[in-house]
Nucleic acid binder design. Sequence first.
DNA 1: GTTCCTGCAAAAGCTTTGCAGAAGA
DNA 2: TCTTCTGCAAAGCTTTTGCAGGAAC
Lengths: 135, 135
Amino acid sequence: MDFVGHLTAHNIKPSLQRIKIYEYLHENRAHPTVETIYSDLVDEIPTLSKTTVYNTLKLFIDNGIASTVTIEDNEVRYDAIMDEHAHFKCDSCGNVYDIEMDISTIKFKKINSFKVETTNIYLKGKCNKCLTNKN
Amino acid sequence: MDFVGHLTAHNIKPSLQRIKIYEYLHENRAHPTVETIYSDLVDEIPTLSKTTVYNTLKLFIDNGIASTVTIEDNEVRYDAIMDEHAHFKCDSCGNVYDIEMDISTIKFKKINSFKVETTNIYLKGKCNKCLTNKN
DNA sequence: GTTCCTGCAAAAGCTTTGCAGAAGA
DNA sequence: TCTTCTGCAAAGCTTTTGCAGGAAC
């Protein structure tokens, strides 16, 4: 995938930090937090600061190439996959998985008068691996 | 509604603060934040502290009579309605509305192996009132 | 008298802001 | 040169923790 091209196509100048953070989001589908992104990338870019991670993620969100995943109260996670999909968080291992779904199939009652612009679906429970390991 | 009875039924001793906060959650369906709860109740209970609001909400959640609504990254809201329902937040006025729905109608792909325990659905857009006022 | 509850003050996190130096065009 | 980007340090918020006094039983 052409990360640099995707950044420039969204009016984001492709600095090293921005490329690496964007790459990281794509290659780490675990929906990382700022802390995770920072601590994983600081090895590769020793001068990296959290401020830059915050700045960069904000820039990505403002330009529509990333979004936040707030499946838990006390942590904000980030996602660079912009297709409509649900998120599943495992209570045991803490991993967050993408769940494919067709959001248009959801049927609401009494919502006719509201104009829905975005839909977020968050599931919690036990993932495959944890269910198997437990037994 | 018998708030005191509901608290004691869930092993929560009905102190004045707890009764008032629980009542407030039921009568204020706008899904208040800690700040809102505190500032609205401090008039009635002048000695109230935010610590107590935090303690009490945590107690309610642990005992299953309230839940958090994390429709936005930067604010945690609280809800005492424990039926399954979706939440809709209006971008314009900021109000959060309950949307009735039957969660069992949602169809996911490839989720068979996961054990889903809770489902949260958050919608954003423009509410009825704001759509009318704009025009 | 013992236990539990409340709320002040302080601490702990997380995120944002201001700004100066560095990098890039 | 001029603009933009980075990252340190400090500030700002929200939430948690420790603890002492108070209420309830």
